[in-house]
């Protein structure tokens, strides 16, 4: 397996990287989403712009009341980060169920979000954690809430000439609980169904799914139905999982089973936040 030929550049800064974009250019961070597709010759970009070593994209930091994860931070760095373990442990725990150890060392959260595989793990977690995506282009920076970032099947708010430079999360208020529950597709180890959920101190919920539909989504129906977080309301809320979504189907899970799993994993996630 070998890809079509391409040029390769490794700029030192985001600004320099932006200069290279245009034409049929792909951004390379960890490469663990991109390279497998290139090897299969699913696309033939002219140039890869490697952003993995741009120092400003490699940081995890607390910035006021926000946690900031740079666009080239790897899954493993998130897993091991003390800042993340302290403030957003769900991301640290969630990182540990992505791919396998080798993939976690190289794959990046930014790359995963930009690739927007409909079964990727991060998307649900970022949605439930209230994340925002910071995008830079030659025109400047813009911030897109995760709820508006995933626009469809493998598609995002990123446009040609954009670089995903950061993912920002509000530092959760004291008493916030979050979880990510996943039914693993046994071959790919992607999420056949993944449900990330957050319980905020005011009793409200954020619930998001991956693997269920053509794009990850926040599930308002479930969120509104959690009520007083009693077992009964949670049970009822879980029954609303993925209502109105176009459910995916493949040889491993039919539409009906996937929807059923969404409900089961929704319930499991919600119950996790009670106990």
């Amino acid at each position: 397996m070998i890809s079509y030929p391409f040029d390769y550049v490794r700029p030192e800064s985001v600004e320099e990287a932006l200069e290279h974009l245009g034409g049929d250019t792909k951004i390379l961070a960890g490469g663990h989403s991109l390279l497998p597709t290139l090897k299969l010759r699913l696309s033939a970009p002219d140039k890869l712009v490697d952003i993995a070593r741009i120092a400003s994209l490699k940081k995890i930091k607390k910035d006021g009341d926000e946690i900031v994860i740079g666009g080239a931070v790897t899954h493993r760095e998130i897993m091991d980060s003390e800042i993340i373990q302290k403030h957003l442990p769900v991301l640290s725990e969630g990182a540990a169920v992505i791919g396998d150890p080798m993939i976690r060392y190289k794959g990046t959260m930014g790359g995963s979000l930009a690739h927007a595989d409909p079964s990727a793990d991060w998307s649900a977690m970022v949605l439930a954690a209230g994340g925002e995506i910071v995008i830079q282009s030659k025109k400047g920076k813009r911030t897109v809430p995760a709820t508006e970032f995933f626009t469809g099947f493998y598609s995002t708010a990123l446009k040609d000439g954009d670089i995903l430079i950061e993912i920002r999360f509000p530092v959760p208020e004291e008493g916030t609980k979050m979880t990510y529950q996943k039914f693993t597709q046994p071959a790919s180890r992607f999420a056949l169904v993944g449900c990330a959920a957050a319980r905020l101190p005011d009793g409200s919920a954020r619930v998001a799914f991956t693997g269920v539909a053509d794009a990850p989504f926040r599930d308002k129906g479930v969120e509104e139905a959690v009520g007083d977080w009693s077992e009964a309301t949670l049970e009822a809320a879980a029954q609303k999982a993925a209502e109105g979504q176009n459910i995916n189907a493949d040889h491993y899970a039919s539409e009906e089973y996937r929807l059923h799993l969404a409900k089961v994993y929704c319930k499991r996630a919600l119950l996790q936040l009670v106990n």
Partner: peptide, 29 residues
């Protein structure tokens, strides 16, 4: 394999185990 699945190509890169079939030689510069 060709899907970064099997791990036969695992090497250590800067102290981390990585799948060398999913890293370009230029990335390892």
């Amino acid at each position: 394999c060709d899907t970064s699945s099997c791990g036969s190509c695992t090497v250590h890169m800067d102290g981390m185990a990585v799948k060398s079939c999913t890293i370009l030689a230029v990335q390892a510069d």
